[in-house]
């Protein structure tokens, strides 16, 4: 900066532009703490149990009752498992809502102007929904499920719980990519999540088997990690599976999710570069 009092240009100060090793991991962790603070501010144990969990259980039971109207125990179980696992995915998609709040709260320009990248912040920012989503589906599947004929052996139950964790983490990757798009085009905010949720409910084998759909829809459904994870949970519940087919589906789920995480990170960094160019990173949002 020139010194106008002396008319001389001072030598510019040395600035260490390289951040210390481990900064990205620490940012994700710090963001995760922020996410947890959000959850504890939103819910108490009581309000989560009586409000949120109750609402999700009612939703799962509602779909199972449709199965009972169709008079088939298989259909009851099918709909119950599908809607219970969908609950985990649904909560993981709340990453879109939490992420876009960064614009409204005025933190986005500060994040952009900070020395770190944006994606590690937003990677950790909405993880509060993952344990919540896993917990609701766990209670639904393993507690309420008994009343609707859904049962697991102890080993398969533990494995199914692990797959629920995977549903949360993999769908979160998809949600993060979606959030990056919505953060750029905020007018999509209200319907992007609902559209995704509806499409996943229709094509991922939640309400009807994948084979119900024409081949191109079945191919399209592969882009959602839920398709693969849900199939594994159904196999575990049925007790008739081979390790190979379970591992194949799990592998596909992880691969697809890695793709979504990569796309999400790239889109978030792209948001920064285009936002700097076209002035869409505002200090104050209307």
């Amino acid at each position: 900066m020139p010194d106008s009092r002396t008319g001389t240009r001072r030598p510019r100060p040395e600035v260490a532009t390289k951040l210390p090793r481990g900064t990205t991991a620490r940012v994700v962790l710090a963001s995760t703490r922020n996410a947890w603070a959000d959850l504890t501010a939103t819910f108490t144990i009581t309000s989560w149990t009586l409000g949120w969990l109750g609402r999700i259980i009612a939703q799962v039971v509602f779909y199972a009752l449709i199965g009972s109207l169709l008079g088939s125990p298989d259909r009851i179980r099918y709909l119950f498992i599908g809607s219970a696992v969908l609950a985990t995915a649904m909560e993981a998609l709340l990453v879109v809502s939490t992420t876009t709040r960064e614009r409204y709260s005025g933190t986005l320009p500060l994040l952009v102007a900070a020395p770190t990248r944006l994606w590690p912040v937003l990677l950790g920012r909405s993880v509060q929904w993952l344990p919540s989503g896993v917990a609701t589906a766990t209670v639904a599947l393993f507690v309420v499920g008994h009343a609707f004929g859904v049962s697991f052996t102890l080993g398969d139950g533990f494995a199914a719980f692990g797959v629920l964790l995977l549903v949360a983490v993999t769908t979160y990757g998809y949600g993060l990519a979606l959030a990056a798009v919505v953060l750029r085009f905020m007018r999509l905010r209200n319907w992007a999540t609902n559209l995704s949720y509806t499409v996943m409910m229709l094509v991922c084998g939640v309400m009807v088997p994948l084979t119900f759909w024409p081949p191109w829809v079945q191919w399209f459904a592969q882009i959602f990690p839920l398709t693969h994870d849900l199939q594994v949970i159904r196999l575990l519940e049925s007790g008739t599976y081979t390790a190979r087919e379970v591992l194949l589906h799990l592998g596909l789920s992880v691969l697809v999710a890695l793709g979504w995480y990569t796309i999400g990170a790239l889109l978030l960094e792209r948001l920064v570069t285009t936002g700097r160019r076209d002035g869409t990173i505002e200090f104050a949002e209307a």
Partner: peptide
């Protein structure tokens, strides 16, 4: 900034500063 903009209001003051500290390495 001024006002509510730029703060994580559900975090504590310490939590806010710790969060931003991590972003500055």
């Amino acid at each position: 900034f001024g006002g509510e903009r730029g703060l994580y209001t559900r975090l504590t003051a310490r939590g806010n500063l710790q969060f931003w500290a991590s972003l500055y390495g």
